[in-house]
C-alpha cells in the first residue's frame, strides 16, 4: 500500500470514528424540534431547557454520586490488590489479574443479571448503593492495572533504601511508595470515574427505578418531544466522560500505551 493510500485510509477511519459524534453535537444545537437533515437553523435554548429539567438534574447528580462512590471503592480495593500481587508470592496470585478482569470481559448483561438476582435474593433496596456496588465491581481492575503497571516499573531499591535508613514500614509507604504511585492512582481514578459515569448495561439491572444520566437517555430517546433535550444530555455525557479519560492519558503519557492505560 502506498504512503498516500495509507494516509487516506487513516483519515477515513478517523472520520468514521468522529462524524457520528459531530452530528450529535450539531443536533444538540438544532432549532427545529424535528430531527430532519440537513439542519436549517441553530439555537442554544435546549441547553437551558435541559438545565431546567428536574429529572435531568437529578440524573446528573445520581451519576456523579455513583461515579464518585464507585471510584472510591475501586481505588481502595484496586490498590490493595495491586500492592499484594506486586509485593508477595502467594497461592492463587496468578489468577487475581484474570479474575478481576472478568466483569469487563464477560458480557455486561451477565454481570448485571447476576447482581440483580443477588440484590433481589438479599432483599436490599435498589438505588445509589446498588449502582455503586455494580460499578465498583468492574472499575476495580482499571485502578489495579494502572497501579500494578507503575509498581512494576518502579525499582524496589528505593523502598529498601528507605527501610535501611531506619524508616518504619508506614513511613516508607507514606513518604516513598505513595508519592511514586500518585499519578498512577489519579490516572486510574479518572478512568474508573469515566467508566462508571457512562455505564448503562449493568446499571439497568442495579438501579431499580432510579435514573443515572445514561439511563435517562435510554428511557427518553424514543419520545419525540424529548429529543432536543436527549441530544443535549448526550453531548454532556460525551464531554463529562471524555475529559477524565483525556486527563488520565496525559497523566500516564510516559507509560507505554495499552488498553488498560
Amino acid at each position: 500500500m502506498g504512503r498516500l493510500g495509507l494516509r487516506l485510509a487513516t483519515g477515513s477511519v478517523l472520520a468514521f470514528l468522529y462524524i457520528p459524534l459531530v452530528i450529535i453535537f450539531l443536533f444538540a444545537f438544532n432549532a427545529d424540534r424535528g430531527q430532519s437533515w440537513p439542519i436549517r437553523s441553530y439555537t442554544v435554548r435546549w441547553f437551558g431547557d435541559a438545565l431546567a429539567n428536574g429529572d435531568v438534574r437529578d440524573a446528573l447528580l445520581l451519576s456523579v454520586e455513583a461515579a464518585l462512590g464507585a471510584t472510591a471503592i475501586s481505588l481502595l480495593l484496586g490498590s490493595l490488590a495491586a500492592l499484594a500481587v506486586h509485593r508477595f508470592r502467594f497461592f492463587g496470585r496468578e489468577t487475581i489479574s484474570f479474575a478481576l478482569v472478568l466483569p469487563l470481559a464477560l458480557p455486561g448483561i451477565v454481570t448485571g443479571m447476576a447482581l440483580n438476582a443477588t440484590i433481589n435474593t438479599a432483599g436490599i433496596g435498589f438505588g445509589l448503593v446498588t449502582i455503586i456496588v455494580g460499578h465498583a465491581t468492574f472499575c476495580i481492575v482499571v485502578v489495579y492495572n494502572n497501579i500494578l503497571a507503575r509498581l512494576r516499573r518502579t525499582s524496589s531499591s528505593i523502598e529498601e533504601a528507605s527501610l535501611d535508613l531506619g524508616a518504619t514500614t508506614w513511613q516508607t509507604f507514606r513518604y516513598v511508595t505513595l508519592p511514586v504511585l500518585r499519578t498512577a492512582i489519579l490516572a486510574g481514578a479518572l478512568l474508573a470515574f469515566a467508566l462508571s459515569f457512562d455505564e448503562v448495561i449493568v446499571t439497568t439491572f442495579t438501579a431499580g427505578t432510579d435514573e443515572t444520566l445514561p439511563i435517562w437517555i435510554l428511557n427518553h430517546l424514543r419520545q419525540p418531544n424529548q429529543r432536543p433535550i436527549v441530544n443535549v444530555v448526550a453531548v454532556a455525557v460525551i464531554v463529562l466522560s471524555a475529559v477524565p479519560v483525556y486527563l488520565s492519558q496525559r497523566l500516564s503519557a510516559s507509560d507505554a500505551g495499552g488498553l488498560s492505560g
Partner: peptide, 22 residues
Amino acid sequence: LFMAVLLPLWSSYLVRVYAWRV
C-alpha cells in the same frame, strides 16, 4: 492519533449508539 482512538474506547458507549440511531 492514539488519543483520538482512545477517547471513544473509554467513553460514551450509549451516546455513540444513540448518535447512529439519529
